[in-house]
Amino acid sequence: MTEPDDPRERPLDAGSSEPLHLQLRGHLRAQILNHSLPPGTSLPSEAQLQVRYGVSRSVVRQALGALTDEGLIERGRGRGSTVAPRREHHRLVHRTSGLSAQLGSTGASVGTEVLSLTVQDADASTAVLGTPQVLALERLRTADGVPIAVIHTWLPAPVFSALDAESLRDASLHAVLGEQFGVQIASGKRQIRAVPGDGDLLRLLHLEASSPVLLLEGTSFDQDGRPVEVFSTWHHPDHVVFDIDIQREPVAQVSAGSPASSAAVDTPEVVADRARRLGAELLRFADGLSTTER
């Protein structure tokens, strides 16, 4: 954090109806959550915060106390306050495995509550499933007892009409589809965006009003390429991190002698072909020398 050059640039407003200690707590909290102050960072001393924000020592102590109660900072006598390490759950969004399976593989205790399971008419968003009616499933997922995701899933109703809420409680949907119906998720399409959360969503995820959430939407296909599910999953922004593995794109094949060939990285097959052609040219050149000598 840098100290404002002008007191008017300070983020606290003495004329606001919100108490100064809540304003200071919110300002520091935002910097912690957006990683401007990453875990392990030492906060300025109480005296420095007083000067920086133009507030009393009691205001600073109230704000730091609230952040400590939230588990966002750690305070120790003689060592000041530091940003606490955070328990983040990482989701590999480029994998076909679902959130439950990925969290379980890390040792987290995963829970799933079925909020509703109903049959609905298909609409434009679920038309890809190819059935006039769909099974609409809403779930709340927790990790180590903390709500981290609200999941809405739509399935082809005729195919999965035998699916019941009890079999999905504290279970992975993909695992249930494999065990009960022989369906394996083999591929899919995914989209990620940040969106504002509505009242019900924020309540389920224990988030404050106007908090943004991370939305992952997509369609999944089975081993035969048939669409199996359409889903929307809203993730808690403080507890879930999306990981994406990246790889260098394969170099496009170009013909020998083309302008782009010198910039391309040759594959072993291309190198071998060039070696064979070079060998043939050397043989022809050697034959020519022999004829000239004769």
Rank of each mutant, 00 (worst) to 15 (best):
Thr126Met: 03
Val114Met: 11
Ala122Glu: 08
Glu88Phe: 07
Val183Ser: 02
Ile151Thr: 09
Asp121Glu: 13
Ser172Trp: 05
Phe181Trp: 06
Gly145Glu: 05
Leu177Ile: 12
Pro156Thr: 08
Gln133His: 11
Val134Asp: 01
Gln133Thr: 15
Ser109Ile: 04
Ile185Met: 11
Ile151Cys: 10
Thr153Phe: 01
Gly188Trp: 01
Leu140Gly: 05
Ser125Ile: 06
Ile73Tyr: 08
Val119Trp: 01
Glu88Cys: 08
Ala149Glu: 14
Val134Trp: 05
Leu137Ser: 03
Thr126Asn: 06
His152Ala: 13
Val83Leu: 09
Asp164Gly: 09
Gly145Ile: 04
Arg169Tyr: 00
Gln120Leu: 14
Leu155Arg: 12
Arg86Pro: 01
Arg87Asp: 12
His94Ile: 06
Thr131His: 05
Leu177Arg: 09
Gly178Arg: 14
Pro147His: 10
Gly78Pro: 00
Pro147Phe: 09
Arg79Pro: 00
Glu74His: 12
Arg91Ile: 14
Val183Thr: 15
Leu92Pro: 00
Gly178Trp: 10
Ala127Phe: 05
Leu155Trp: 08
Leu72Asn: 02
Val83Glu: 03
Arg86Gln: 14
Arg79Met: 13
Lys189Phe: 01
Thr106Ala: 11
Val83Thr: 09
Arg75Ile: 13
Pro158Gly: 05
Asp123Met: 10
Lys189Met: 02
Pro85Phe: 12
Gln180Lys: 15
Leu163Thr: 03
Arg77Gly: 10
Gly107Arg: 12
Ile185Val: 15
Ser167Pro: 06
Thr126Gly: 02
His174Asp: 15
Ile73Arg: 11
Phe181Gln: 04
Ser81Cys: 14
Gln180Met: 12
His174Lys: 04
Ala171His: 14
Val159Glu: 14
His90Ile: 15
Ser161Cys: 09
Ser97Ala: 15
Glu138His: 14
Phe160Ser: 08
Leu135Trp: 03
Ser100Gly: 00
Ala101Leu: 14
Ala149Asn: 13
Ser97Gly: 13
Leu129Pro: 02
